[in-house]
C-alpha cells in the first residue's frame, strides 16, 4: 500500500517553461492534454466528415447527430437567440467532453481534474453573461435580483441571497465538473491499484469492477459536459431575458 498515491495523476508537471509579458505560460501536462484534446476532437470530427454527402454514411451520421444534439440543446435553452451561440456552446461541450474522455485513456492526463481549468471555463461563461446583462439591460439588471412578489421589508434579506446564488453559479459550475472528474479518476485509480495488489485468484474482482467503473466514467464524462454546457445556455438565456 505504500506505493499508492491516489492524487498523483492530478499533479501538474512543467514540461517547458515559458513566459509572455511576465505571465507564466509554461507548457505543462495540462496544456499538452488540453491542446491534444482539441486536436483529437477536431481530427475525429473531420474524419467522420471526410466524405460529406447528401445521404450520410454511419460516420457522417454520427457527426451530424453530435452537432444536432448540441444545436437543439442550445436553441431550446437560449430562447430566440440560440442560433448565434451554437459555435460557442459546441466548442465548450466538445472541449469538456474531449478533455474528460481523453483522460480515461491509460496514463493520460485529464485537464478537467484541474480546478483552475474548470474555473477558467466557468468564469469565462459567468463574465460573458455579466457583460451581456450590462450591455442589454444596463445597470438595471441589478433589479433582476429582486424576486417578484416579495414584501419590501424582506428585500434587504432576499437581495443578498439572490446575489449570492448568482455569484455562486461559476463556483458550482467549476466545482461540479472538477469534483466529478477527480472523484471518478481517484476511484478508478484506487480500484486498479487494489487489482494489482490482490492475489492472482481474486484479481478478477477489482479488474471487473474497473471495467464497469470505466463504462460509468465514460457516461459521466459525457453527462458532465452536457451539464456544464446546458447550464451555460441557461445562464446566457437568463442574461438575455433578465427582467428588472
Amino acid at each position: 500500500m505504500s506505493g499508492m498515491q491516489p492524487l498523483h495523476p492530478f499533479e501538474v508537471h512543467i514540461l517547458y517553461p515559458l513566459e509572455l509579458f511576465g505571465w507564466d505560460i509554461s507548457i505543462s501536462n495540462t496544456s499538452v492534454a488540453l491542446i491534444g484534446s482539441v486536436l483529437v476532437a477536431v481530427l475525429a470530427l473531420l474524419l467522420l466528415l471526410r466524405r460529406p454527402g447528401l445521404l450520410p454514411d454511419r460516420l457522417q451520421l454520427l457527426a451530424e447527430s453530435y452537432y444536432l444534439f448540441v444545436y437543439r440543446m442550445t436553441v431550446s435553452n437560449i430562447r430566440g437567440h440560440g442560433e448565434a451561440y451554437v459555435p460557442a456552446i459546441l466548442t465548450l461541450f466538445t472541449l469538456i467532453a474531449a478533455s474528460n474522455l481523453i483522460g480515461l485513456l491509460p496514463g493520460a492526463f485529464t485537464p478537467t481534474t484541474q480546478i483552475v481549468v474548470t474555473g477558467t471555463l466557468a468564469a469565462s461563461v459567468f463574465a460573458y453573461t455579466l457583460v451581456l446583462r450590462i450591455r442589454l439591460h444596463g445597470w438595471r439588471f441589478i433589479l433582476s435580483f429582486v424576486p417578484a412578489g416579495v414584501p419590501v421589508w424582506l428585500l434587504p434579506l432576499m437581495m443578498p441571497i439572490e446575489l449570492l446564488s448568482f455569484m455562486a453559479r461559476p463556483v458550482s459550475l467549476a466545482v461540479r465538473l472538477f469534483a466529478n472528474m477527480t472523484a471518478g479518476h481517484t476511484v478508478l485509480g484506487v480500484i486498479a491499484f487494489f487489482g494489482l495488489l490482490a492475489p492472482w485468484y481474486v484479481q478478477w474482482v477489482p479488474m471487473s469492477l474497473s471495467v464497469v467503473l470505466l463504462a460509468v466514467e465514460i457516461f459521466i464524462a459525457a453527462i458532465q459536459a452536457y451539464i456544464f454546457s446546458v447550464l451555460s445556455c441557461v445562464y446566457i438565456d437568463d442574461a438575455i431575458h433578465a427582467h428588472g
Binding site: S31, L34, V116
Partner: peptide, 16 residues
Amino acid sequence: FFPSEIFWTLVAFVLL
C-alpha cells in the same frame, strides 16, 4: 501553475 493553466485553457478554447 494557475497562470499557465488559465492561459492554456483559454488558448485551447479559442483554438477549438
